[in-house]
Design a protein around this nucleic acid. Structure first.
Lengths: 366, 366
DNA sequence: TGTTAGCACTCCATAACTTTGACTGCTAGC
DNA sequence: GCTAGCAGTCAAAGTTATGGAGTGCTAACA
């Protein structure tokens, strides 16, 4: 069965003077290797994909593709496996952009429709959905809270002289906690909440951080009792904003389902990176600015990740990066399925975002 | 070096007619195997632990201990490894109850002192601390919210016609979300919050569930606008209470650090159970009602866990089970260290609990 | 009766070797 | 330019030796 349809001939030839037939063979080879993880042989390509070319001819073609750097043999008399160059060509030019079934789409929608209020809950939910849809470990890196647009601010006094800070954003509630000086009443908190919401509605959290000092000095003059809140609130805000670039991981052990990691030593290298939040953050800060970004095998900076690929979606709002959402897996990754899953999830997240966006305007007009 | 000091002779003899010398040998054997994971031999015991008994005599003793079922040989001419029976004796009678260093204690206190408001955050923090302190995968199963005592109830309207429900408990905030009918003002939410807090302060969440219908019927009569809240709030409460017995896992891959899981097939069996929340819940519902409960090797019900041990602490408030906190690891687990870590964490949790308990009374008296 | 030295026995772990089979590269013919 | 067929190659699996660690047993001793 020939799965390759020739639609982008012009683009392809930019890469190299590579015949259409070689591309067809390479496409079959990569897809087969992704699916079965066994080296490609002239026999298997003939049998499964391209019956009208004999194995002997395929041998010549495979040999040529090897000379061009798209395939490599593990040893003489073994079949061939794709190189990073082949995966790159496959990802850029050959693969169907989304091989993501309707059934999976339904599952994703179902899971995301159970909306949760807190941003961190949304993130871990998203990570879970991706890991389930792709069967690889999923990682979500929230790139700080700076770019999130504020919808409302609430300060809620708790019983033991502390208070919750809830910042409602279009994506979910961000929360912090701080201590109240004695004498701060529930009323003061309500007043402060209203004041802050009024001053910062529609602005980003970064804007709030940069301007809260001056804004609150004014407020302090207006409202006396506000002083019991002032310092601690600012502390809380700066803690909230500076430190917490949240990272969530789900399904690390799914890595072990792949035959390239039957040797624990190899698996350990990758799992150790998955354990180390700082390293992982760096990994997910790499890649280009496209909607979906692929870092394949040897393209990875880290030596221990040369056997891996990282696929991530850049989740943006108003052109500003909010989070990196992605998976990590063997170089022999099902790129098509992963890219499909990530696209669907980002698009569903954007829909949720629109949903919350329309309502407050309705409220405002009332 | 003889690490065993004889203090509980009377108790020990209840088990079996086993000489003090055999106990000393067995103690050395188990501790050595826990530390090095290599079979015990007459030579190594002589060299490392009991110099004044010759290897030949130790051979006789080890052979006798094998006949009694405390040791087993993997094959003739191999050393011996402890059986489940040996670990059970070790845990019940021989081990030092806490082998938990001051340094580790400081770490635990540090981590727990960064108090977070939300119960789910507290739980995952606790799981992280345990996994870090023991170097095994940690699991926390929150046994529903039923037994948590209520301190305050807040309903917070969000911008898009939905509302947050925050139930403050002595252990942390439990939160839910529900939709508001139109016309429900911020004032109504405040009134409802105050009313609910007044009615249910000090009662458990279970009590609230069982009595909210009747209590709120009265309130509906008092306050007209309350009807916009009524149904959805009850829905939210019952969802909150029934479904969510939270389970949190941290450090699953730490299992792979142990030599008994260098074969991925063996590791997979255990990791699969760690993936399956339902099965895991059952595992952690087993065990006795003691403060710390050990389920060792073959004592496990699940066939796939016969090579594992599960140690859990029952975290209770007022005698009522709140959560199971524990670790899962190879049968050759460092029981002493794990038990120490769990005890410390439960005791620190109880302290935090007391801390929040004193403050509201202060508030009440003001 | 309990302890101990010494020796024979056992059996795993490791390495060296052999066999098998899958696949390629090459050559010659179409 | 394509293809059949055959020789060559090499890993994977199976087989056979070798070494060494550890026990069990026996006989002597306190």
């Amino acid at each position: 069965m020939l799965r390759f349809d020739c639609t982008k001939k012009g683009d392809r030839l930019e890469y190299e003077n590579i015949s259409e037939r070689k591309l067809q063979i390479l496409y079959s080879a990569v897809e087969d290797y992704i699916q079965f993880a066994t080296p490609i042989t002239s026999g298997s390509v003939h049998e499964k994909y391209i019956q009208d070319i004999s194995p002997a001819t395929l041998r010549n073609e495979l040999s040529a593709l090897e000379a061009m750097g798209y395939l490599k043999q593990l040893h003489t008399s073994s079949g061939r496996v794709p190189t990073t160059k082949a995966y790159r060509l496959y990802v850029n030019e050959l693969m169907k952009s989304t091989k993501f079934g309707k059934k999976e789409l339904e599952t994703v929608r179902d899971l995301l429709s159970k909306r949760t209020a807190y941003l961190t809950d949304v993130i871990s939910q998203v990570a879970g959905v991706i890991s389930q849809a792709t069967n690889y470990p999923a990682v979500v890196v929230l790139n700080g809270y700076d770019n999130l647009p504020i919808e409302s601010i609430k300060i809620i006094p708790l019983i033991d002289k502390s208070a919750l800070l809830l910042i409602g954003t279009k994506n979910g509630i961000v929360n912090g906690q701080f201590n109240l000086s004695s004498g701060v009443t529930e009323e003061v908190c309500v007043d402060a909440s209203n004041l802050l919401t009024k001053k910062f509605y529609g602005k980003t959290i970064k804007y709030m951080r940069d301007n809260i000092q001056t804004e609150l000095v004014d407020a302090k003059n207006e409202i006396d009792s506000f002083s019991g809140l002032y310092n601690n609130l600012i502390d809380c805000l700066s803690n909230l904003i500076s430190g917490q670039s949240h990272i969530i991981k789900v399904g690390e052990t799914k890595l072990l389902n792949n035959p390239e990691y039957t040797d624990l030593k190899d698996a350990k290298k990758v799992l150790d990176i998955l354990e180390d939040d700082n390293e992982l953050k760096q990994v997910f800060e790499n890649g280009d600015e496209n909607e979906i970004s692929f870092t394949i095998g040897r393209e990875n900076n880290s030596e221990d990740l040369k056997s891996c690929s990282v696929v991530k979606a850049n989740y943006k709002i108003g052109g500003k990066q909010i989070a990196s959402i992605g998976v990590i897996g063997p170089e022999r990754m099902d790129y098509s399925n992963v890219a499909g899953a990530l696209k669907v999830i980002v698009s569903e997240l954007n829909k949720l975002n629109l949903l919350t966006k329309t309502n407050p305007e309705g409220d405002e007009q009332n």
